[in-house]
Design a protein around this nucleic acid. Structure first.
Length: 423
RNA sequence: GGAGACGUGUCCGAGUGGUUGAAGGAGCACGCCUGGAAAGUGUGUAUACGGGUAACUGUAUCGCGAGUUCGAAUCUCGCCGUCUCCGCCA
């Protein structure tokens, strides 16, 4: 959520930036300013009336003690008449505030200066590529055949137990999941991230805090009996650790990492995008999250991208890094880098990580602040990225490393998997 | 799930209707003291939204929400949470 005062002071710049994100409902910006004007006016009126009520009430107390009953009674009458104004004022204020917030929630974050213009993934900017695309032998197959061949995942069984998009990992497939999670967490904690194992359901407040609500209501599974939401990413519970807090400047940066299953309804997906491991309702992911000083978030963003890049390099996967264009970025992000790995058998790039700087868009909603050197309270910046999401990594690992008699895992995984080969 | 007790500032803790945004203590910050430190001592130490260049000032906030009252941390109701006992249970 953008800050109202920022919008007030930078109206034209806000409009110009929103255009890069192809945000069309620009009248909302002026509506917000008008609603805020109204809010201030009502607030002032309310404060003045309430001030009079407060002072009169004190006065009444004094008069009563002095036994001046008549004067007290006439003051009571005055207060009573003021109160008839206060109730509707309160109601109006609540209404205006709600409308203001509702409008504010519709405005996406402003893209950073280096975000390219564009509407579709084709407009994303290639930052760099690394690793080598393997040449597969004849007869190489996509991962959904390999998972069957080596009995790694039983998709039909998952469908029987739950529904499509809920894979049942079996045998070496289950073990590989465990090995990858463990490796990723170790890699992240070695870089100074503190490990968390969060709840996999969150309450409504937390879902609002990181912006899943009200924007993506239909994308989360909702346990209605208790009004909990299944998390679509560990970002939600972990970032909310710092909801409603005021940190010391020395506490920054805060670096957290967490494994969690991720639950996504993915309403509206279809076709080759959902084949095999490409898109699931439940998948495993390890996330990294940082809360930093606002002056340092871009520096941090670079280190996080480099961190995930190193992780991909260690897995010996061909990858590329993209800077997303305005149209392809998420609602809350100021800038996003996608890291993709090349799936040799499908001959396509698969997104395995998305690293974003949210600047103060999330922390404004979360009220995650810190006291700076002058004792002033200001908002922190938040960032997060996948490090890494498992399914597409698994798809690429299987496809790119397939041989006639098995799948050769990259060296870093040998000790975690306690074998070199899936066979 | 049932019964009971409780929920006050960074922490501990007082406060059952009226100058209480909140005693006292601890912690923390700054100053004095000291060769330096400890001890001692003085001052300061919540958040949000308004107004004001500023000093300052208005309003709201004692788990959350609603209510009673001229006036609520204090009374009433609902919700949430914590603790104890019982039930159930990995």
């Amino acid at each position: 959520m953008l800050q109202v005062n920022y919008i007030r002071q930078n109206r034209d710049a806000v409009l110009e930036r929103l255009a890069v994100k192809n945000f069309s409902q620009i009248q909302i910006v002026d509506d917000v300013i008008a609603l805020d004007d109204e809010r201030k006016k009502l607030q002032a009126e309310f404060d003045n009336t309430q001030a009079r009520v407060n002072s009169a009430s004190k006065e009444i107390g004094n008069l009563m003690r002095q036994g001046k009953k008549d004067e007290a009674e006439s003051l009571k009458a005055e207060v009573a008449s003021l109160k008839t104004n206060i109730d509707p004022l309160k109601a109006q204020m609540a209404d205006v505030e709600k409308r203001l917030i509702d409008q504010l929630l519709l405005i996406p974050n402003l893209p950073a200066a280096e975000v390219p213009k564009g509407k579709t993934p084709e407009d994303n900017e290639l930052v760099r590529e690394g690793g080598e695309k393997p040449t597969l032998a004849d007869g190489a197959v996509p991962h959904w055949e390999l998972t069957t061949k080596y009995k790694l995942i039983d998709f039909e069984l998952g469908t029987k137990i739950t529904g499509s998009g809920f894979p049942m990992y079996t045998g070496q497939g289950a073990k590989l999941q465990r090995a990858l999670v463990q490796y990723f967490l170790d890699f992240n904690t070695a870089a100074g991230y503190v490990e968390y194992l969060p709840p996999f359901m969150v309450n409504e407040e937390s879902a609002y805090g990181t912006g899943q609500l009200p924007d993506k209501e239909g994308q989360m599974y909702h346990a209605t009996a208790d009004n909990f939401y299944l998390i679509p990413t560990a970002e939600v519970p972990v970032t909310n650790v710092y909801r409603d807090t005021i940190l010391k400047e020395d506490d920054l940066p805060i670096k957290m990492t967490a494994y969690s299953p991720c639950f996504r309804r993915e309403a509206g997906s279809y076709g080759k995008d959902v084949r095999g491991l490409n898109r699931l309702h439940q998948f495993e992911k390890v996330e990294i999250i940082q809360i930093v000083h606002p002056g340092k978030s871009y520096e941090t963003l670079d280190t996080m991208v480099a961190h995930v890049e190193k992780l991909l390099q260690s897995l010996e996967l061909p990858y590329r890094i993209l800077r997303l264009c305005g149209g392809d970025m998420g609602f809350a992000s100021a800038i996003t880098y996608d890291l993709e790995v090349y799936s040799a058998a499908q001959q396509r790039w698969l997104e395995v990580s998305s690293v974003s700087n949210f600047e103060n868009f999330q922390t404004n909603r979360l009220k995650c602040r810190f006291k700076d050197a002058n004792g002033k309270t200001q908002l922190t910046h938040s960032l997060n990225g996948s490090s890494l999401a498992l399914p597409r990594i698994v798809a690429a690992l299987l496809e790119n490393n397939q041989m006639a008699d098995g799948i050769m895992l990259p060296k870093v995984l040998h000790s975690y998997f306690r074998a070199q080969l899936i066979m």
